[in-house]
Amino acid sequence: MTATETALADRIDAVLPQTQCGKCGYAGCRPYAEAISSGDADINQCPPGGANGIRLLADLLGVAAKPLNPAFGVERLRLIAVINEAECIGCTKCLPPCPTDAILGAAKHMHTVITELCTGCELCVAPCPMNCIAMVPADNADWTPEDAGRARLRYQARNRRLARLEAEKAERQLRQKQMLAKLRSAKKNA
């Protein structure tokens, strides 16, 4: 990506809803912003952003607004995930896909959604083997730029945490391999 495309992607990303749902066909809002800035994606692929989001993108890019492409979904009221706690078995399959760590729970314990952190991405629904996660209309249907900003920060913090955990795991595995190599060498020399 060129510096110009990166700067444009920053401005595009700033107007996207930050639900990180992937409905646009990309792995999240930032990859979608980068695809728009490089000309690989159109401005009408974000159902959570809807008509208002398309208008904001059109204004930013100086192009005509167009209807949401139905191949990517339909615009609807903001939804949030709710877990039927009586049916939750604590399998933890809903935790990894949540882009903002909005689900609280541990293995073999009931989980719950922290409503204020839920972006409504729906990524937790499919992995649930108990079908105990429902998407319900949010009490506050308005998703503001401030909400999007908080969601972006939580998503970035989650990604940093996951990268740190992966680096720590790789470091442990390297130490284990080195220790095994030393043991094998000592055994061979004995």
Rank of each mutant, 00 (worst) to 15 (best):
E116Y: 01
N52L: 12
L180F: 11
C91H: 07
G49R: 01
P47N: 07
L104W: 04
Y32M: 06
A148H: 05
A9H: 04
P145C: 15
Y155N: 09
A107R: 12
M1I: 08
S38L: 11
A126I: 14
E166C: 06
L16V: 07
Y155H: 14
C132Q: 15
E85M: 15
R161A: 12
Q20V: 04
D42Y: 09
P67H: 13
C24Q: 11
I80H: 11
C98Y: 00
K93T: 15
A81V: 08
P99Y: 05
N159M: 14
R158W: 03
D147G: 06
G25I: 05
E87P: 02
I103V: 13
I43S: 00
A102L: 07
E75M: 15
G62F: 10
D10H: 06
P70Y: 09
Y32F: 12
I83T: 02
G53C: 03
T19N: 04
V74R: 14
A141E: 10
Q18I: 03
D147C: 15
S185T: 07
A27M: 12
R152E: 07
A190E: 14
Q176Y: 08
C29L: 01
L183W: 02
K108I: 07
C21G: 14
K188A: 08
T112I: 11
Y26C: 02
G25V: 05
N189L: 13
A151L: 01
T92M: 15
G39K: 14
G53D: 01
V125C: 08
I43T: 09
I80S: 04
A81F: 07
G53P: 00
S185H: 10
E5M: 10
A190R: 10
G73D: 03
N140D: 13
E166W: 09
N159P: 01
D142W: 10
N52G: 09
E5Y: 00
V63Y: 08
N69W: 04
T112W: 06
I43A: 09
K182W: 06
Q20S: 08
C29S: 13
A170G: 00
A35G: 09
A81H: 07
A7L: 15
C98H: 01
N69V: 03
Y32K: 03
A148N: 02
Q178K: 12
N189I: 00
P31I: 06
M135H: 01
G105N: 09
L60C: 14
Y32C: 01
P137Y: 07
L153F: 06
L153P: 04
G50R: 07
K177I: 08
V82T: 14
Q173V: 02
R158A: 02
M1E: 07
A167H: 00
A163K: 15
P67N: 11
M135D: 04
I12L: 02
R150T: 12
D59W: 01
E75K: 12
I89S: 02
G90S: 15
N131S: 15
A190M: 14
V74E: 14
E166F: 04
L60W: 10
P17E: 02
E166D: 13
